[in-house]
Structures are given as structure tokens and as C-alpha cells.
Design a protein around this nucleic acid. Sequence first.
DNA 1: TTGAAAGCGGTACCAT
DNA 2: ATGGTACCGCTTTCAA
Lengths: 351, 351
Amino acid sequence: MGVTIKQIAELAGVSRGTVDRAIHGRGDVNPETKEKIERVMRETGYRPNAVAKALKAAQNPVTLDVLVPSSPFYADLLRGVRAAEEFYAHYGVRLRVAERFELNGASQAAMLRKLSEEHTDGIIMAALDVPAVREAVSCAAEKVPVITCNSDLTGVKRLCFVGQDHFAAGRASGTLMGKMLPQGGEVAVVPGSRDMLAHMQRAAGFRQALQEQGEYELLLDVRETGESDKRAYEVVKELLDSRKNLAGICMTGGGQAGAGAALADSGRAGEIRLACYDTLPGTVEHIKNGTADYTIAQDPFLQGCLPVKLMYEYLALGKEPGRERIFTRIDIRVKDNVEDQEYDMFTGEDR
Amino acid sequence: MGVTIKQIAELAGVSRGTVDRAIHGRGDVNPETKEKIERVMRETGYRPNAVAKALKAAQNPVTLDVLVPSSPFYADLLRGVRAAEEFYAHYGVRLRVAERFELNGASQAAMLRKLSEEHTDGIIMAALDVPAVREAVSCAAEKVPVITCNSDLTGVKRLCFVGQDHFAAGRASGTLMGKMLPQGGEVAVVPGSRDMLAHMQRAAGFRQALQEQGEYELLLDVRETGESDKRAYEVVKELLDSRKNLAGICMTGGGQAGAGAALADSGRAGEIRLACYDTLPGTVEHIKNGTADYTIAQDPFLQGCLPVKLMYEYLALGKEPGRERIFTRIDIRVKDNVEDQEYDMFTGEDR
DNA sequence: TTGAAAGCGGTACCAT
DNA sequence: ATGGTACCGCTTTCAA
């Protein structure tokens, strides 16, 4: 199997307790003894047994707070959180998932302050990157580790971020759009919210990649859709009515189902390319029926379960995440794979 | 944390040994006692602790044989195998990865026969679906569980298959090609090998999806490329020379780097769409420089590590895979994400 | 400074 | 048919 602490102890002529102390630097160990133990470890290639470690670690349970808005947008991410919760139940990890956590700066900041009164061992959150939240998180991060998921916070000392590189995702979308419109043409970039960094980064990446491929007339001063399908319907309808030469539309997020509906109602679906992001049910529907051409997802499930894993390893095993940002994949979906489920390594179920 | 066997035993007024026997049906247990234990388990919602189970199970190590050709095509799959090996080292799983396992029926059958002389607890293999291999595997499968990965065997009682749904992947490629050639045109399907079921399925899916989108003239009687880049270069050059109206090429596998080179040399790269499969280095290169438009990968890493997980769970925990086929994802890559690495849940490294 | 021993949850063997 | 106990590898406490 592998070398155990017991074997190291025997080879070094000491007890298991001493080896443990030497490894972790807790308690006093005679320098010579330590030297010898380390030599034996090196020679035998000792690797700690993570299973045994986990069994032991479960004796000191940790409580993690999960602050993720419970909107449909985060449904898949929350499924990832639940899967990780199930998996880590026997590892002494307890999750407290906030109900009614809202996508609103003041509410989030208040929530964080309330949290600091109870005991928590770590915070996992999808936060709004606004001053009030940044400040509250900075304060919390002084005491406990914070991992951001899906959306990051700028200038805050969080342990790690798990989410998409939106600029790169935007580029991938722009590359596809360019290949679908080889002859150039008018392409509109429809903003969700100009306050959302993610949306702006997607737009920037899209433009950059598209313009590398040819002459396109980009329409950038389109009205924001917000999160509203109704609003998006109007915005896109207006666009379709006013631009008879429109060849492509890139949504940056928010109201994509409404945009699809407007395109379908105009009778120009299939003729005008429609690019989306993520896999909200309405978006998926438009991909399936051909109104939208492709969508770029970001593995929200992983954005939910990976932070739990990272937090467990940090708290229970003392292992830092390797990187400060972990990007989830740029997941291009068309009609034929938009509904595909993937095998999940945690639960063994579909995701 | 959770209910333990010890607690169940106390509540039922018996010993832990009895509870264990009642759960697993080994040894004799008084029906009344069993009834009572089961009731307590139901009421408390007992869930066995997988960590403790694993620690114990490591006492009875298992040896798995991995028969995967060591060609570049399987490099990523083998990296997955290695990652799983590392992860499961402490679970009492030992892997024996065959060196010089070849993509050749007679050789594979011989290998399997040799294997049956040594002791093995399970076989993981990427096999050729030809009679000699089928027969040898059928024979081996009588004694030990067999999991196929990447390529399946027809009519063999293997435990499970982990790989891509090639027809669906072909469809996705056809859908993309159609969107990139909205005005129709001549599209060639270049076969790798007509003996490879995967290649034929890709071709069939591609045709189906493409034809749903418009009028295309499909060129289907193209010569096979085999696995040879040189051959593929010739085949594609011939195609380019003879078909001045060619608008798209779909490779089904094998020699894709050669095909890209031929297209690049012809000076018509960018003008003619080129669709590929998988992410061999040569293919990736052509995607990056724009000669090829997209490639469809199949998560080879998962095809390597998942079989090890399934085999461990089957042998050590007595858990059957949920499905007979587990499809890995249809992973569309363009220039901007073709080199992306993903976080791997097993090793915590990139893959 | 070091050793001995108990315990995490589950399994397996030996006694009874 | 059932109970008691030892063990997996690691950590932690208590005693020396």
C-alpha cells in the first residue's frame, strides 16, 4: 500500500506520536530526532493517508456558511453545493445555506454582519462587487477564510475565487459568431447590466474576437435588459425593427429568454444569429428549438461544490488552494448537447 | 455528524457486530432482532460512513489491470488513470497498467489470455471491437468485472462503458457546420477508418444534423485516412484539387493534423470550414492558428479515472454503476478554449 | 522531550 | 445467534 506513520516510527526508532509532532511542528521535538525522522520520511517517500486523516478530522466538525442568492440563476450552483454537502457529511463539514440571500448590496452586507455574531469557520459566497459588500467581506475575511464563487470581489483578501474567465468566454462567443457570419455584417451586443463586471467582460471579449475576424459593424449602444425578460423582449424587438440588416445578436446576460422570444416573433429566427450565456431553462428552450444558435455555460455545478472542497482542505487538512483564481470551463453548447448531463464524481449522479 | 453503527446498536440493544451482520446479511441474525435493527436504522436515517468504510477496505487491496494502448491518442485518458491511481492509492487499489498494449486484435486477445494466468480483480480496457477480442473479453468477464472505456465492445457482458456518444457528437459537429455554412454547399466527410464504429457513428450523426439544416451536397466516398497524417494530407489535397466548390470538411478521426496541413498549404484555410474531433496536439495547433474551426473532445481524462472509481466502488463497496453506459461530455472547442485546463476534483491539479 | 493509549466508524474473527 | 475485541492510519491527550 504505502508507508505509514507507524513504519516511519519503527524505522526511526521513536513512537508514532513523536513522528506526528515532527511532521506538523507541534510540541517540542529534539532537533536530532526530527532530522532522523525527516530523513526516513524522505527515503521511504511517505505520503500521508488522506482517508485516515479525514476519519480523524471528522471529530472536529466545521461549519461553513454559504451565501448564494436563491434565484433560478444559481440553481445549478446550489445543486453543486448540495452534492458537496452530502459528500462531505462524513468529513465533519456542516453547511449552513442562507435562505433568502439576495442579490442586493445592502442586504448582503447586513447578512454578513449578522453572520459575524454567530460562529462560522468559513464563508462561501456569490457576492455583488459593490463597496458595501466589499467592506463587509473584508472585515469578515480578517477572521475566517472566504471563498467567492461565480462572481468575484475586487480588492478583497479572499482565499480563492471559483468561476469563469468571462473575457475568454466572450472571446469564444465572438469567434463562433465570426465563423457563422463570414461575410461580416451588423452585430448587436445587448447588455444585461452595465454594473455587472461579468457582462462587460463578456462584451469586451466578444468584440475583440469578432473584430479579429473581419469587418463587422458593432452596435454597442443598446439599452440594458437588466434581469427582465420583458425588458429584453422590448429591447430586442426595437433592435429588430430598426436594423433591417442585423446579422447577429450577442446577449451578455439577463433576459435571454425574452430576447429569444422577440427574435422568434419577428420571424427572422435562423436568419439572424443569437448567442447566449449560461443554461437557464428559457435559454435552453431557445437553443433546442433553433431560435438561439449557441450558449456558453460555465459549469455552475463545479462553482458550487469546489469551494466546499477547497474550504474543507484548507480548514481540516491545512492545504491552501493552489491558485487564487480557479476558472471553470468555457462550455459551448448547441442544440445537440445543451441538455446533456454529466457524471458527477461526488455523488455518482447526473448533474 | 451522523448516526453510527454504534448508536444503532445501543438503540436496538444489541452489539455492533450484530448490526453489521443484519445490514449485510452475512451470518445468522434472529429475524426479530433484524426487524428491530432495521426499524431503528430507518427511524434514525442511518447512512454508512464512506470514509470509515474506505479505511477498513484498504486492508483488502485489489489489483486492477488497465489495458489501454499507449499511443498519443490515449495520453489524456492515461493521465486520468494515473490521477485515479494516485487518489486511490490509500484505498487499497493497485493498478497494473499494461505497457505496450497495442491497438490490434490478435495482440489484445493474447494479452487478455496471458492476464488470466495471473491474478486480477478487475479489468479496465479500451478495446478493439473485433471477434477475437470480444471472445477473449467474454471469457475474462466470466471471472472478473470488466469496464470498457473510450471504445465499447458489442455483445460482451462488461460491467459498464465510459465514453462518448459518438453519434450525438457527430450531430453537434453537423449543427455547427450548418450554422457556419448557412448558404449550403459541398461538404466532405473524410473517414478515418470504416472499421472503427466511432468514426462511422460520428459521420452518421454529422450527416443527419447537417441535412436537417439545408441543402448540402455531401461527399461521402472519400478515401480513408487511417491513422496516418501523410495519408490524410494526400486525401485532403486530392479533395481540394478536385472540388473547387468545397465549402466544408468533417474529419471523423485519424490524421487530422495532416488534413489541416493540406488545407493550410492550399491557401484556402479560413475559406473552407474544417471540423475535427479530439485534442491531439496537431489538431490543437490547427485550431489555434485558425486552419481548423472547431474540434469536439470527449473528456478523455474522465474516461481514464472514472472506470477506476467505478471498479473500486464495485469491488470494495459492492456498489454497481448506476448505468450500463456512462457518456462523457460533448466538449466543443474553438481557438479560445482549446487549450484550457480544467480543475480536477481528484488530484486538485489541472487536467 | 518522548511514549503509551484511546478513539474516529466499520468490519471480521473468535468466543460464547 | 450474539457479544467482545482487534484493527485500518492518524491525531491527541495524559503520563512519564
